[in-house]
Every structure is written in structure tokens, then in C-alpha cells.
Design a binder for these strands. Structure first.
Lengths: 354, 354
DNA sequence: GTTAGCACTCTGGCATCGAGAGTGCTAACC
DNA sequence: GGTTAGCACTCTCGATGCCAGAGTGCTAAC
């Protein structure tokens, strides 16, 4: 009797850990609640099913496993997965063959940096059989490298900002009076001399000092304001674009056979706001991070897990890659894969700055 | 008896049309197979349910309606919807209030042309309660307006192509030998003089004529080749980017309560290849087009319908906007809304070229 | 501490059943 | 001839009950 109430927290002995591990790994592959019998049959535990049942009861008391109903096997709780990820297993590195294949694919999209993050998402999706996520690398504060102004018609011009960090931003400027390309080019030259290499705030300050009396001064001021504002908008925007691929993988998981659940997952996948939030926090920490089920704030995210890792150069440009899958996913494999892909992205970005 | 076999094709008399119309409109709103009784109760048909039953049997014989099972009401076939769209109803114009609201929203994203098509998709989704689709306007053959080359490191440069049609393309060029920004700027100047205003093929020809003996000639040739290739790639790419919003709307339709169907629809929504195909053909025709259920080639698309319309300037840049919804959708409303939004996009694009 | 044995509980699948909806046919009516 | 009332017939859908199977938790023995 003392036995049953023995442990509700504290360190788990090795046998208990082994059994928890077996339950999780069995459940991850089969998606069927696992019972004591299945456990002793498929894993060399060296004890009888009755003993296993005692341990299972302990694990349930500790909140690491649960019971869908009386006569069903155990399934891991979110806390169980968390403990497993935290204390029991190591990440499984991606097999060398797959590493080579992926490197090869990245080699194919020769020097099209805007495609890298998409490819990362696609790759993660196909390797982990979950949804792949990736954002482009975005600087904390962008530096203007160079700007161009091209006329569209005599009242409208297109402003093109090339950033030191590689991105390009475009904006339209409407003009108070008819202006030709020659005048715009002059203004562009003037602004380039003034603000090239500056951040948004620096540029705003420099532009505020433009003397409106000099030739094209007023126009330069007007366009300059737009430049500064565009830069600021870009800085202020979160890592907005979360690209995803392979959402279908997630939807095919048997736990989402119920169409209401399926819809919930899907709306989770479309919840870009929360993904953006996570991405920002992951980008800040610099490590692979795992968010399991209930640990996610939005209700519709409570049935999925995320494994995310940042890439890029802290202080210059950072992005995030990762996967989103059912809570019942193979964390060691997912972590290993995400780690590899973020490392690869690091190499690629380094190449740009080397 | 002759009566039952009376008509399997040919023009439908007005009463028969009215009944078909009633069946479709009732079914579109309720999603329940509609029987003769419901029809006489809710529509002023002026005849008894027995008569309606005769007409329904005729319509079924004509292939315009069908029976899920013996004791159920009728539902429209794809041919029924087609006939309805083709011969019975007119598009319902979007109410003036909504038109105003939408114009207002487009006014908000002041001059950010890259956002227009996204907003179009979002708008279509929220108004029609189906999925909104939109592609950016893409030229058949792009004209280079201006190019920039900026150095990344001494062996790597970024190539920026500004197109007359408004788009910007970027590519990385690796350099055989260390090259500084000054040299790159010179090359940029040289290439600008040579190829500004030209199409991909024209540019390729001009670049082939570069004398490698002149200062920076070899480099200009190398980078020029990359310019021409980037332009050609862009021309060759289909209207690649089909932006969508509100997919959740479609998934909430009761006909997709079954999770397998739901998955099928979703994979339909992700079938960008086919959407791209449709978009190209719609862009070519220049009218609102409706694709109903089985009329779509891919199997997973057989349970959805599309209403698409092109926008932009034929010969310069064209894009497509539209909606994707369950086959059981309100076509008159969808057509009216799509027509309005494509008209609005036309106005916006015209503004760019005026 | 471990194990065999066993009673107990709960699910999931299957068959049965009846109410309800809607049809198609027949025969009468205008 | 077209229209209608009446009616038998068919099929679905939800509720109900039942049974086999799985897995547990407890007890008592090792």
C-alpha cells in the first residue's frame, strides 16, 4: 500500500526511466495506447507484466503517463514527453547519407539566397514527415546599402532600398508635382551620399538635416522621409514571413482522424501570429527549443509540438527553422534534423558574410 | 409513361428551370438534399409536391440533379450547377456598402503594390466565405529597367534587376577573381547602357556582342550572362506564386465533415501546380471563369469549384484573382465579387501605368 | 520486491429496430 | 394531357443492446 503512494515526484530510478522510454517510443510509432503486456513482449525489460503494471501506475501518479480510460494502455502526458526530451534521450543525428543528399539539394539552388529558407522548410518536412517551418534571416536593425528611385509616371515613383543584410525593400512614392527621371536620379545620388550605410534611426536624423533650400532639397526631404519610414517599418516588423511546407504530413497523423481535431490543427498551422512570436523568442535564445502540446498558449496549438532552432549571425541577421508535428512525434529525430538544418543554414549565411 | 422518358436534353421550360433554380439555391444554403415538400413549402411554385416530383424526376433524367439514395431529396450534379451558372442566373453585384469598405481597405495599404494581391485574396476570402486566391501581376516578357551590382565579399556579388513592370529580381554571382565595388559599379554602368529597356532575348543578344578586350569586358560578359539568364528564368516561370487566404472557410463546410474528404480538399488547396495551370489559362482568356467540380482534372479537386478572373494589362502584366470553394457554393455571389475585385485591381494597376 | 491469478471495467464493433423522410406509382380529377 | 391526392415502399439515421477483447488493479503467494 505504501508502494502505491511512494513517489509523486523526485528522480526516477533507471528501470522506471527505461519503462517510460519504452512506453513513449512504442506509442510514438504505433499511436496505440500501450499496455503492460505489449511492453514485456517487445522490450527486454526482464520483469513480468505485473511488475510493469506497478511501475506504470507510479508513472501515472507522477503525471508522466495517463489513461484514456480504465481498460486501455498508457499514453504519455505532455509532462512525460518533456521529461523524456529533457532527461532520457539524446538527439539522434541525421544519418550521413541524408546529410549528403540535403547538402546536394542546397547546392542545386546555386546562390539564390531567397530560396534557401523555403528549401529548408521543404527538406525538414520530407525528412521528419511533419510540417517544416522556416523564416528568412532578418536583421534586428537594417543598414541601408544603396537606394534607387525610378519613375513610374510623372507623379509616381518607385523607391528601391538595398539593405546591407541582403534584403530589398520597395515602396511607391507619390509626387506633389511632375518630376522626371533626371531629377529623381539626382535626388537618389544626393540621398545615397547622405544615408548609405546608416540604420533607420540614423537615416531619419540625417534626412531631418536636409536643407530644403538647395536644389531638389524639398523633394529629397520628402522622399528621404519615405526611405526612413520604410526602414523603420521593416525593423519594427517581426520576422513576418513564416514559410511552411508539408502541412499535409501532420494532417495525416491518426490522432487527427476526427475532422474537428483536424480543423483545429489546421487553424493552428495558420496561426501565424503565434508562430511569429515563438520565432522571435527562439531567435533570441540561440538554441534548439522544443514546445510540447499544452506548453503552447493558444488552445488550438495544444495538440501539436514544435522543434525550432535559430540560424544566422546574432546581431546581424537571424532566422528560424523547425518543424511542427503532432505531440506524438519522434523528438530525438526531429531535434537531430532541425539541428543539422540550422547548422547548414549557418554555413550558408556565413558564406555570405565571409 | 411517355412522360418519364420525355426529355433527356434540349431546352428546359420555364417552370422546370425555376424548380432547378429553387433546388440549387435551397441546397446551397442548407446543404441538405431537398425534397418536393420542402420546395413547395418554401418557394411559390403554384403546384403540388406531386407535380414537383415529376419535374424532379425529369431533371434527374437530364442529369442535372441526383439522388444520394432512394428516400433522400435531390442535390444538383456538376452539370446542374453548370447549367444554372450558364443559363439561369446572372452574377449578383457586390452591395455598394461592401464595395466601399473594400475600396477603403485598399486605400489603407497606400502604394504598396506588392501587398495588393495579398489583400485581394484576403478580401475575397472574407466576403465570399470561401478561400481567396490571388497571384501578383507578372509580365509575359519582362523588360529590364535598370540593374545594380553590389559586392558581398571579394568573390561574391549580388545582382539586382529592376524590371519595367515593377518587379525586382535578385541573384548572386560568384566571381572568378577578387573584385571591388568600384569595378562592379563600372560594370553595372556599362551593362545599364547596353541592356536597359531590353527583354531577356534582346539582352542576351546584346551581351553576346560585348568585346571582352575592353576594360572589364570579361567581367561584364560573365555578369551579363547571369543577367540574361535571370530574366529568362523569370519569363519562363509560370505565374508561380498563388497566394491564398481563408482556406479554413472551405474546410468548415459541412460536406467536409468527413476527415478523409477534408484531407483531400486540403491537398487540393496545396496543389499549386494545377492552380498555376488554371491561372495561366484564365490570364489568357480575359474573362471571369468558373470551374465546377468534375470539370477539374485532378481527382482531389473534383469536390471543389473555382471562380477566377484575370486583372492587369494584357501584353504587359497580368495576374489572377478568384475564389476556391465547395462545389456547393453561391456562384452568383462569387462571380459578382470576383468580378468586382478584379475590376478594382485593374484600376490600381492602371494607376501604375497611367 | 516480484509474480501469477482473477475479477472488474470500459471500448468498439455489430446487429437490431423504429421513426422519419421522400420517393414513385396509381388512379382520379380538371 | 397535365395535375393532384393517396399510399406502399425504400432507405437512412440514431438509439439500443450485446459481446469479445484488452488491460487494469488487487490479492495472495513466492
Amino acid at each position: 500500500m505504501a508502494r502505491r503512494l511512494r513517489r509523486t515526484s523526485g528522480p526516477l530510478d533507471l528501470r522506471t526511466q527505461a519503462i517510460l522510454r519504452a512506453v513513449i517510443e512504442e506509442y510514438v510509432t504505433t499511436a496505440i495506447p500501450v499496455g503492460s503486456q505489449a511492453l514485456v513482449e517487445r522490450y527486454r525489460l526482464g520483469v513480468s507484466s505485473a511488475t510493469v503494471r506497478h511501475v506504470l501506475a507510479d508513472l501515472e501518479a507522477s503525471g508522466l503517463l495517463m489513461h484514456p480510460h480504465t481498460s486501455a494502455g498508457r499514453i504519455p502526458t505532455d509532462a512525460g514527453y518533456r521529461f523524456y526530451v529533457e532527461s532520457i534521450v539524446e538527439a539522434v543525428p541525421l544519418p550521413a547519407v541524408e546529410q549528403l543528399m540535403i547538402r546536394h539539394q542546397f547546392g542545386q539552388v546555386e546562390f539564390a539566397s531567397e530560396h534557401w529558407f523555403r528549401l529548408a522548410a521543404t527538406t525538414l518536412a520530407s525528412v521528419t514527415r511533419a510540417a517544416g517551418l522556416a523564416t528568412p534571416a532578418k536583421p534586428q536593425s537594417a543598414h541601408l546599402r544603396r537606394l534607387d528611385i525610378v519613375t513610374i509616371n510623372d507623379r509616381l515613383a518607385s523607391l528601391i532600398l538595398i539593405l546591407r543584410e541582403g534584403a530589398i525593400k520597395q515602396a511607391l512614392v507619390s509626387l506633389d508635382e511632375p518630376t522626371d527621371q533626371a531629377a529623381l536620379s539626382e535626388v537618389a545620388g544626393l540621398l545615397n551620399d547622405l544615408v548609405a550605410g546608416l540604420t533607420a534611426t540614423e537615416a531619419a536624423a540625417a534626412i531631418a538635416r536636409i536643407d530644403e533650400a538647395v536644389p531638389h532639397g524639398a523633394l529629397a526631404r520628402r522622399i528621404g522621409d519615405r526611405v526612413a519610414r520604410t526602414l523603420m517599418d521593416y525593423d519594427a516588423s517581426a520576422i513576418e514571413e513564416v514559410f511552411s511546407d508539408g502541412l499535409l504530413n501532420v494532417m495525416e497523423a491518426p490522432e487527427f482522424a476526427d475532422s474537428d481535431k483536424l480543423r483545429r490543427v489546421f487553424s493552428a498551422l495558420e496561426n501565424r501570429a503565434y508562430l511569429g512570436e515563438l520565432v522571435v523568442s527562439v531567435a533570441a535564445t540561440g538554441r534548439v527549443q522544443v514546445f510540447i502540446g499544452q506548453e503552447n498558449q493558444p488552445v488550438e496549438m495544444r495538440e501539436v509540438s514544435l522543434v525550432l532552432a535559430p540560424y544566422g549571425r546574432p546581431g546581424r541577421a537571424v532566422g528560424v527553422v523547425g518543424v511542427l508535428g503532432p505531440t506524438r512525434m519522434s523528438y530525438p529525430q526531429a531535434i537531430g534534423t532541425v539541428r543539422f538544418v540550422s547548422g547548414l543554414m549557418n554555413e550558408l549565411v556565413d558564406h555570405l558574410y565571409a
